[in-house]
Lab assay of single mutants.
Amino acid sequence: MATADDFKLIRDIHSTGGRRQVFGSREQKPFEDLVDLGWLKRSSVDSRATHYQITERGTSAAL
């Protein structure tokens, strides 16, 4: 179930172009929650960072 923080984060991601790069596993937790909701997808993972991209469902949630 989505929380107020989830909606705040997806709106922030949407307003800044729909993509986010995250460093460190602790910082990934809120983004992984949005992946579980179907609002974000992991577009790539490298040794230092994970890249996320907003989905259509995420765009709808952000509006």
Score class of each variant (00 low, 15 high):
V45Y: 09
F31V: 02
A4R: 10
Q28D: 05
S47P: 10
S43R: 08
A61T: 04
K8T: 09
S47Y: 08
F31R: 00
K41L: 13
F7C: 08
T3V: 05
F7H: 05
D46S: 11
F23M: 14
Q21I: 15
S25R: 10
H51G: 07
A2W: 06
R57C: 14
S15V: 10
S60Q: 14
I54K: 01
L34K: 00
I13L: 05
R20D: 03
E32M: 10
A2L: 04
A61P: 01
L37G: 01
S44W: 14
R57H: 09
L40M: 04
Q21Y: 13
D46H: 07
G24L: 09
R48T: 14
G18T: 02
S44N: 10
F31P: 01
T59C: 12
R26F: 13
A2H: 05
P30N: 06
R42E: 04
G38T: 03
L37F: 05
I54W: 00
S43K: 10
I10Y: 00
D46K: 07
D46R: 07
R57V: 11
D33N: 14
L34I: 02
D46I: 06
W39S: 00
K41N: 09
D12A: 11
Q21C: 15
K29L: 07
T3C: 07
R19I: 13
A4W: 11
T55G: 01
A61D: 02
T55C: 02
D5Q: 10
M1R: 12
Q28N: 08
E27L: 09
S60E: 15
L40D: 00
Q53P: 01
R11A: 09
R42M: 08
M1D: 10
I54G: 01
R20A: 12
K8R: 13
V35T: 04
L34F: 02
R20V: 15
S44R: 13
T59E: 10
D12Q: 11
A4T: 10
Q53R: 07
R11Q: 09
G24I: 07
L40Y: 00
L34Q: 01
D36I: 13
D33S: 13
T16A: 11
Q21F: 11
V45K: 10
D46M: 06
T59D: 04
Q28H: 07
H51F: 13
Q28K: 11
F31N: 01
L9V: 03
E56D: 12
F23D: 13
L63R: 07
T3R: 08
A2E: 05
Q21T: 15
L37Y: 05
R19C: 15
K8W: 11
D5C: 14
G18Y: 02
T50R: 08
S25V: 13
G58D: 01
S47L: 10
